[in-house]
Simulated assay, not measured.
Amino acid sequence: MRIRDFTDADWGQVWPIFSDVVTAGDTFPYDPAWPAEVAHEVWVERPPGRTSVAVDDGGTVLGTAKMGANRPGPGAHVATASFMVAAGARGRGVGRALCEEALDWARRQGFAAMQFNAVVETNTAAVALYRRLGFAVIGTVPESFAHPTRGRVGLHVMHRPL
């Protein structure tokens, strides 16, 4: 597996991943009714932010990440990132590789920390991964995500210094 910068030619493979993850409704607060054009606008970061893809040896996109400053101005020293992995590639280290690469990117860009603003508390695989990578839950906004089977659940704010 290799992680590289996203190109517009990748959208044809990223869009189905985005659509599947968002349609599942259990990890991202995005609208599943968004057309591909809106999803592209939301997911693909403009510089100085970055969007990346994890690809196998044949060029198949296994997952994608977006990263950049968490907030502008006085908050711009803290990075944020989001990750999506294709259903068939889960459990194979793709998410971990994307997150590690995002952390490395943020360090190289001079960010002081990385913060995830809305990690669904029932997304236990992601929460466990982020904890293993040094993130801590610094707060949970209760009942702020409408999970399709569990009802209203909390969103964690997770943070780690770089």
Rank of each mutant, 00 (worst) to 15 (best):
M1N: 01
M1R: 06
M1F: 02
D5E: 11
D5W: 00
F6W: 08
F6D: 01
F6I: 00
G12T: 13
Q13L: 10
V14Y: 12
W15A: 14
W15R: 08
P16C: 10
P16W: 12
F18W: 15
V21A: 15
V21I: 13
G25P: 00
D26M: 10
D26W: 11
T27H: 04
F28C: 03
Y30W: 13
Y30H: 13
D31Q: 09
D31F: 12
P32H: 14
P32K: 02
P32A: 02
P35H: 14
P35D: 15
E37G: 01
A39D: 08
A39Q: 11
H40S: 02
E41T: 12
E41C: 08
W43K: 04
W43M: 03
V44E: 08
E45C: 09
P47T: 09
P47Y: 10
P48W: 08
R50H: 10
T51Y: 09
S52E: 12
V53A: 10
A54G: 06
A54W: 01
V55H: 11
G58H: 06
G58F: 07
G59L: 10
T60I: 08
T60H: 09
V61H: 01
V61Q: 05
L62G: 03
T64P: 00
T64F: 12
A65H: 07
K66L: 14
K66M: 14
M67T: 00
G68W: 05
A69N: 01
A69I: 03
A69Q: 11
N70A: 13
N70R: 15
P72H: 12
P72T: 09
G73W: 11
V78D: 00
V78M: 05
V78R: 11
A79D: 07
T80F: 07
S82W: 08
M84P: 00
A86V: 02
A89K: 05
A89E: 05
A89N: 09
R92A: 11
R92F: 06
R92V: 01
G93M: 12
V94C: 03
V94H: 09
V94D: 02
G95H: 11
G95D: 04
A97T: 07
C99K: 01
E100L: 12
E100S: 05
E100R: 13
L103R: 03
W105R: 02
A106N: 03
A106M: 02
A106Y: 07
R108H: 09
Q109T: 03
Q109E: 14
F111V: 01
F111D: 01
A112G: 15
A112F: 12
A112I: 02
A113D: 06
Q115V: 04
F116C: 10
N117L: 08
A118S: 15
V120H: 05
V120E: 08
E121Y: 02
E121N: 02
T124G: 10
T124L: 13
A128N: 09
Y130R: 02
Y130E: 00
Y130C: 01
G134L: 08
I138V: 15
V141C: 08
P142L: 08
P142F: 09
S144V: 04
S144Q: 14
F145P: 01
H147M: 04
R150N: 04
G151V: 04
G151T: 10
R152V: 03
R152F: 14
V153M: 12
V153K: 06
G154F: 06
L155E: 09
L155G: 05
V157L: 13
M158D: 04
M158N: 04
H159M: 06
R160Y: 03
R160S: 01
